[in-house]
């Protein structure tokens, strides 16, 4: 009897902890959405207008259009670079690198992946920023600078995820292709096809991380609310506004609610991307099996 009660309590306690985590996700979505209802009701479609003057006393404007566009442009541009570079490095490490080379590179990349984002922000402002000024840019913090620092943040991640999925490709497959006379390039094609679910997963996670990253864009992007026209323009993505203004706004005001709407957008973007990733991965897995 005693033993049964104890084991029952044990199961109950552990299941509570696991369920609490699931509940937390729903609580997050619920809280952020419920705080942004006021903004949706009072500002409506004005939320997507280009002008952001939240503290103008007579007629404040809460348009996040420009910031949203800047965020997307920055995330897409940076992701494409990270994808290409990351894929290249991962293929090299997987196919050509000697054991010592691979070990050393992976270790340094792992250390680099541990650099806190705020420290990368400092690197962008103090070290890269000075370099930009010396090269004649009119603003030390700009689109290109933010893009470079964001690539430093996500490249190690992209390389290690892609490398892991390449390593999981069955050995026999590659050997079979080689014995049928496949050249280098064709072998890589076979491997890429079989690692595709993992690689797509890595690519979408990279995009997600860049889109949601706050500290780096807050420090390095420059903070001007205008549509990016050249690489050296200062820009302000969505998350930068969120990070810099949410701490200073009066709780319960319309401005506060609009900032929650921004958070809601970022969150739903991430959730949609997650669902999409799962779908695509599953479809790719089916495609590989034939």
């Amino acid at each position: 009897m005693m033993k049964k009660t104890i084991s029952f309590l044990f199961v109950l306690l552990t299941s509570l902890a696991a369920v609490a985590v699931a509940a937390a996700l729903f609580a997050i979505v619920f809280f952020i959405f419920s705080e942004s209802i006021r903004a949706i009701r009072e500002v409506g479609f004005g939320l997507f207008s280009p002008n952001w003057y939240p503290v103008w006393e007579t007629e404040p404007e809460f348009g996040i259009g420009t910031m949203l566009l800047n965020s997307l442009i920055l995330a897409v541009w940076t992701s494409v670079w990270v994808w290409i570079l990351g894929l290249g490095v991962a293929i090299y490490l997987h196919r050509y690198a000697s054991n010592r080379e691979r070990e050393l590179m992976l270790r340094i990349l792992e250390y680099a992946s541990g650099i806190p984002s705020v420290v990368l922000g400092l690197f962008g402002v103090l070290i890269l920023g000075n370099l930009f000024l010396r090269l004649g840019a009119w603003s030390a913090q700009n689109f290109l600078n933010a893009s470079i620092v964001l690539s430093i943040l996500t490249l190690p991640f992209m390389v290690s995820l892609t490398f892991q999925s390449l390593e999981k490709v069955p050995r026999q497959l590659v050997e079979g292709a080689i014995s049928l006379g496949a050249k280098d390039f064709a072998v890589i094609q076979v491997e890429l096809k079989h690692a595709a679910p993992g690689i797509v997963n890595a690519m979408l996670s990279v995009f997600n991380r860049i889109f949601g990253e706050t500290m780096i864009v807050l420090m390095v992007a420059g903070g001007a609310n205008m549509l990016v026209g050249s690489f050296l323009d200062p820009v302000r993505p969505l998350t930068a506004t969120l990070g810099s203004e949410i701490g200073e706004v009066a709780a319960g005001s319309l401005h506060y609610s609009v900032l929650f709407f921004i958070a809601f957008l970022v969150l739903s973007g991430c959730l949609i991307l997650n669902v999409l990733t799962n779908r695509i991965t599953r479809r790719l897995e089916r495609w590989i099996k034939g």
Partner: peptide, 19 residues
């Protein structure tokens, strides 16, 4: 539950701050 936890991992950290 594990896929929920994985989803939470991909939520940007600022969202946790705002929450």
């Amino acid at each position: 539950l594990q896929s929920l936890a994985a989803t939470m991992n991909s939520v940007p950290s600022i969202v946790y701050g705002v929450f």
